[in-house]
Amino acid sequence: MKHESITILRYISILQRNTNRYFDLTLEPDQIGSGQQFFLLRIAEHEGITMYDLAKLGHFDKGTVTKAVQKLSEQGYVYLEPDPHDRRVRHLYVTEQARPLIERVYRLRDHWTDSLTRELPPETQEQLLHTLQILAERSCQTLEEMQSSAP
């Protein structure tokens, strides 16, 4: 059986690695990187979210979320408040110190997206986004099916 050396996964991997490098380089002065920027934006968009819900939202394991939140907390960008009804649950909020950084991350994200897609016609950009959304949803479904059928 002949295996193809070039697949869609190769290009997705290159895009992901380069995107991570872009955020690592541009956010270095803020002492966060590609790993934390996703969580910072989701916390800002969902003030009071729990770590459990943050993990579900981004399809991350609990350890990854814990490490990212801890780093953001150490940098003074987020804080945790215990739930008044269940002390084991912690709600996440961004600090005032984080607000300018959040706006900067949105600008950086928009700039990166524009630099990647600017030569594509708008309809191609829309189709690409739609296709990637379908692939992401299918990947989640496939993994959920695998996990639910595992012994």
Rank of each mutant, 00 (worst) to 15 (best):
M1N: 12
K2Q: 08
H3P: 10
E4S: 10
S5K: 11
S5Q: 11
I6G: 02
I8H: 10
I8Y: 13
R10E: 14
R10S: 12
Y11H: 11
Y11F: 12
I14S: 04
R17L: 07
T19S: 08
T19Q: 08
R21P: 08
Y22P: 01
F23G: 01
T26F: 04
T26K: 12
L27C: 03
L27S: 06
E28W: 10
E28H: 13
E28L: 01
P29F: 01
P29W: 05
D30S: 09
D30N: 12
Q31G: 02
Q31E: 13
G33F: 02
Q36K: 09
Q36I: 01
Q37S: 11
F38Y: 11
F39L: 02
L41Q: 10
I43E: 00
I43Y: 00
A44P: 03
G48I: 00
G48Y: 02
I49V: 03
T50E: 05
M51V: 04
D53M: 02
L54P: 03
L54K: 03
A55M: 02
L57P: 07
L57E: 13
G58F: 03
H59Y: 15
H59S: 08
F60G: 01
F60M: 04
F60I: 03
D61L: 01
D61F: 06
D61C: 04
G63L: 07
T66E: 09
K67W: 13
A68M: 05
V69W: 04
K71D: 15
K71G: 06
Q75D: 09
Q75V: 02
Q75M: 08
Y77H: 03
E81R: 13
E81G: 03
P82Y: 07
P82H: 10
P82E: 14
P82R: 13
D83P: 06
P84F: 06
P84L: 01
H85T: 15
H85N: 15
D86Q: 09
R87S: 12
R88G: 02
R88F: 02
V89M: 00
R90L: 01
R90G: 06
L92N: 01
L92H: 02
L92Y: 04
Y93P: 02
Y93T: 01
E96A: 03
Q97V: 08
Q97R: 14
Q97S: 10
L101G: 05
I102Y: 03
Y106R: 11
Y106E: 14
R107L: 05
R107I: 06
L108V: 08
D110E: 15
W112R: 10
T113F: 10
D114P: 06
S115C: 04
L116V: 10
L116F: 07
T117L: 04
R118E: 14
R118L: 03
E119I: 08
P121H: 08
P122E: 07
E123D: 14
Q125M: 03
Q125T: 12
Q127N: 13
H130M: 09
T131F: 09
Q133F: 09
L135D: 11
A136W: 13
E137W: 14
E137N: 14
E137Y: 15
R138C: 04
R138V: 05
S139A: 08
S139Y: 09
Q141D: 14
L143C: 07
E145S: 09
M146H: 15
S148Q: 15
S148N: 14
S149I: 11
A150N: 13
P151K: 11
